[in-house]
Design a protein around this nucleic acid. Structure first.
Lengths: 135, 135
DNA sequence: AAAACTGTAACATTTTTTATTACTTAATAA
DNA sequence: TTATTAAGTAATAAAAAATGTTACAGTTTT
């Protein structure tokens, strides 16, 4: 399962794309997603860390895109919303005394790596603008 | 994140591939994965439902492959270990009064569908035999 | 009949995700 | 210059999901 973070982040960015000249508040965005504003701000913090958006504090503050939606690839968002590999496994400590158990994680990671490459390739051909134009 | 079920199921199948003529017990398999035998049996139930393995109850019972590992594609396992879409989202109920909120799920599902196709395509070229030969 | 298995339901625990509260800092407008 | 509105963030709580355990019925072999 893809983390909800990806969906939330895409949602935030779609809204920002629709209002490229305005600072949107986390409360307004949270209202569209139906989510707590603090969670929105957390995802925005992540977007800021990756130089995709900028925020303004204080009255009439909010968040807006730092670059045009055409220049933001969904692949960037995909990679951003997962700390490690996205298509991977959590914890898994097989028996090191078993020939299969000893190697399974290495082989699975290799497989997941290939899958993630395919996902990235697919997403890199889609810009935030493309996605937003569907609305 | 891929569900641990995929990893567990691949692990089970790799063991069965290594001992194609024996009925392996859930306890033996659980020892290699380092998992509770009941969870192994639950995944085996899923494999049985998909006609990939057969089990024998009673003394000296266990599980074995129903067909050759060369004829089992990892894509089949991928699809099997996810009830719905794998690369998808859990719950998400955006605001239906917002033009973006109203459509986001449809558009995300469409995107996830494309991604899942790519994953399937990638995995359909890998057989269980290929994977097991790495060990 | 005893032993060694699978099958499954019910329940418990742990982990992860999501939500909330509370408070600090910053910018704007009155 | 003060009130207001908004971001930033840490700490905590609640809910959901994943994982683990127990218990026991049904099967097959010895």
């Amino acid at each position: 399962m893809i983390s909800g973070k990806f969906a939330i982040t895409i949602h935030i960015l779609t809204l920002l794309t629709k209002f490229p000249d305005e600072y949107l508040s986390s409360e307004f965005i949270a209202g569209s997603i139906n989510l707590h504003p603090v969670l929105v701000r957390k995802e925005i913090a992540n977007l800021k860390k990756n130089s995709i958006v900028e925020s303004k504090e204080g009255k009439n503050g909010g968040t807006k895109l730092l670059k045009s939606a055409a220049k933001i690839s969904l692949d960037t968002i995909f990679r951003m919303t997962f700390d490690t590999v996205s298509f991977g496994f959590s914890k898994n400590e097989p028996n090191p005394n078993c020939p299969v158990g000893k190697q399974i994680n290495k082989n699975l990671e290799n497989l997941y790596g290939k899958i993630n490459e395919k996902i990235s390739l697919q997403l890199s051909s889609i810009s935030l603008e493309d996605f937003s134009n569907q609305f």
